[in-house]
């Protein structure tokens, strides 16, 4: 395969990957800094067993 094609494929894949990661990056950091969701460590409180502990009085 021509060299140029190879390069194009790699660069496009790279761009897509970076775009997705970059978007997640921004989303994560901004929500984390705001104080974000319950745990910040997993996507949603249903899984974070720790939050259950937090309210035992």
């Amino acid at each position: 395969m021509p060299v140029v094609l190879g390069h194009i494929i790699v660069i496009s894949v790279l761009c897509v990957v970076l775009f997705i990661c970059g978007k997640n990056f921004v989303k994560m950091i901004s929500s984390e800094l705001k104080g974000g969701s319950c745990c910040g460590c997993s996507g949603g409180c249903s899984g974070c067993s720790k939050c259950g502990t937090a309210h035992k009085n």
Binding site: L18, N24, F25, C41, S42, G43, C48
Partner: peptide, 25 residues
């Protein structure tokens, strides 16, 4: 089940973190 699920979620979120934050950084 509960324990496995909790562990898996934690591990998965760590990997997700790696996928976004670490790659970009």
């Amino acid at each position: 089940v509960g324990v496995l699920r909790a562990t898996w979620e934690r591990g998965w979120s760590f990997i997700k973190r790696a996928g976004s934050v670490i790659v970009v950084s």
